[in-house]
Design a protein around this nucleic acid. Structure first.
Lengths: 135, 135
DNA sequence: CCGAGTATACGAAGAGATTCGTTAGGACAT
DNA sequence: ATGTCCTAACGAATCTCTTCGTATACTCGG
């Protein structure tokens, strides 16, 4: 009696996030595909574990399912960007007292490896923001 | 038989992070102080709940305790910055496939409220990074 | 039709996180 | 000394997350 009552999107747990990442990489996939993909990294991950998670995530509304075929096909119901936004906001609120820029500074400082083109991209975004503010 | 075996710092849970934030704000505090501080936001938080968490956190090495007085005084054993770094790294790895700059772009875009001085600060940091790279 | 192989569904165990109730002891005013 | 008021300590209930074992059902080649 709760399946349809998703006003806001649910926060994926760590394990769920792993599954979502596989789905974002692979696109619509069977349980088997997802399991194989994740097995590359975690050798001991069980098939039914993945299946169970996908069922849970279906219930939470994190994935959608096409079950016309015997092997059901799952796909993400939340976008990568949307999820990244959600988790980032959560971190900002939870650990940076709501200060977006503190997070940015944290992420950039001690930066051994931010590539030049990334720096340029960030700089470009800053320019756009600053222009927007001057209006 | 595990108290002293902290090679790396433990990831604080959500509730623990709340307590740490209170301690970072207040400085060394009794259970009562922390409880009062957190009660402002969560009206229903019990005193013994806070006490229990502080005991757990002491065990995990997240806080230190001065128990010469009857009312023990707790203080953070991990710094705010250290914890922010840890959690940020975790988010980058878990949700941004290790790309620091993707997180930065995410945090800045859709930015309704990044104040001008914050933008300037970020820009200054970028300058420093770029100079460092040209050496 | 039957068995081997592959799928989903279900339940439950075990670990971790969260929250308190209850107990017991110290301080101190009466 | 006794009752009141704080305090810490424990243990336990509850919830969530993670992981599988087992049961059951479908499919297809022989």
């Amino acid at each position: 009696m709760k399946r349809k009552s998703e006003l806001r999107t649910v926060r994926p747990t760590n394990a769920e996030l792993n599954i979502l990442r596989a789905l974002w990489r692979l696109g619509p996939s069977t349980v088997r595909s997802v399991h194989e993909e994740l097995s590359r990294v975690d050798r001991n991950l069980g098939y039914t574990t993945v299946l169970k998670f996908l069922q849970i995530m279906l219930d939470k509304g994190l994935v959608k399912r096409e079950d016309s075929q015997r092997a059901h096909v799952y796909r993400p119901a939340v976008s990568r960007e949307q999820t990244q936004r959600q988790l980032t906001r959560q971190l900002i609120d939870g650990a940076f007292d709501g200060s977006r820029s503190q997070l940015v500074l944290q992420a950039l400082s001690g930066a051994d490896g931010v590539r030049p083109e990334e720096l340029a991209e960030i700089r470009a975004l800053l320019d756009r923001l600053q222009i927007a503010q001057n209006n």
